[in-house]
């Protein structure tokens, strides 16, 4: 009786686990839910390898079952020899050779020439310095912690790092590439589906490595061109009295020593460029969703949200002051 009662429940639990596991394949940070040419190639490689592994698993266990349950007697030396030479030498050499050849044909793709736009990304602790270099430009459009791509175009990424090794990875758009101090690595991506995706530093780089994410937005080419035009402009002037007070606080507290806001006297390059910080979807490299409350929390004590962050805390500011400062920054869209 209990057996009968347990069986459907066991089966239900099994399907629950399977569906939960499959649901995890979706999402904005999944290599199995590709949104670009490069990620699709890698996803195909993955599925072929999974299918091959399943076949090998069934073959191995099938043989095991056959020789221990179906045909239980000692085998001739000839059978044993064929199994060892065929299954142990010829099969793995062929399979590995084929996978290696296929992998090698994919390898040069990550350095394909782009369609004009180059983006230089530098790993910092723990954020991303971003420079857009449209074709033919000799000065970059500086941004931080967010990447935007024109859909259907191939964009070249030039990757480097300031202090330690990081690794650049937006799983839905393509493969992983390490970022080294004093050295440039390249990655070429052709995202195809407009949408928001999440990237993550994939090489341990210190205390807040896990909080080093990057928002990637793929946009239709016209929308991208319009956005880049806006991004190239100087910062908005503060529109309200609160924002004006916030701008004065930004001056008084010396924020410009580390942060640049184009169109103001602030030209610091230690921290992220804040010219259009309010237009980004996240704050502090994916740590918080962009909002006035998040900006306030960050300014008061960055270290609490991102252990080891180099930005000093401003606990002496009153709530009213952080609100003004956050209002100013949020308005920099």
């Amino acid at each position: 009786m209990t057996d009968r009662g347990n069986l459907p429940r066991g089966r239900a639990a099994f399907w629950l686990v399977v569906s939960l596991a499959l649901a995890a394949c979706d999402g904005d940070q999944s290599a199995l839910d590709p949104a670009g040419e490069d990620a699709s190639v890698l996803a195909l490689l993955f599925w072929v390898m999974v299918a091959g592994a399943v076949v090998l698993f069934l073959m191995m266990n099938g043989l095991f079952f056959y020789f221990t349950r179906v045909k239980v007697r000692s085998q001739s030396r000839a059978v044993a020899r064929w199994l060892i030479v065929g299954g142990g030498i010829v099969l793995p050499v062929t399979v590995l050779g084929a996978l290696l050849t296929w992998g090698l044909t994919i390898l040069p793709d990550h350095r394909q020439a782009g369609d004009g736009l180059r983006i230089r990304v530098t790993g910092e602790q723990w954020w991303w310095r971003v420079e857009y270099w449209p074709e033919g430009s000799d000065t970059p459009i500086v941004s931080a912690n967010e990447l935007r791509f024109p859909a259907g175009r191939r964009t070249e990424l030039i990757l480097s790092s300031a202090h330690v090794i990081h690794s650049f990875w937006i799983p839905a758009l393509g493969g992983k590439m390490d970022m080294f101090p004093g050295r440039e690595t390249r990655l070429s991506l052709r995202p195809t589906e407009p949408g928001r995706y999440r990237g993550q530093c994939a090489e341990f780089c210190g205390t807040s490595h896990a909080w080093m994410a990057i928002e990637a937005q793929v946009m239709p080419p016209e929308a991208f061109a319009a956005w880049l035009g806006t991004e190239a402009r100087s910062a908005n002037l503060p529109a309200t009295a609160a924002a004006q007070a916030g701008m004065a606080l930004f001056n008084r507290e010396g924020c410009g020593a580390c942060h640049a806001i184009r169109g103001t006297p602030h030209v610091g390059r230690v921290g992220p460029d804040l010219t259009h910080v309010g237009g980004r979807a996240t704050l502090a490299a994916g740590r918080l969703p962009m909002s006035i409350e998040a900006l306030q929390a960050w300014i008061v004590q960055p270290d609490r949200l991102k252990p080891g962050a180099l930005m000093p805390a401003y606990p002496h500011l009153t709530r009213a002051e952080t609100l003004q400062l956050a209002t100013y920054l949020r308005g920099l869209e």
């Binding site: 050779g97 290696l100 050849t101 090698l104 044909t105 390898l107 040069p108």
Partner: peptide
């Protein structure tokens, strides 16, 4: 030797 030489042929 063949595996090491494959990139010469493929890439």
């Amino acid at each position: 030797v063949v595996f090491v030489a494959l990139p010469l042929l493929v890439i």
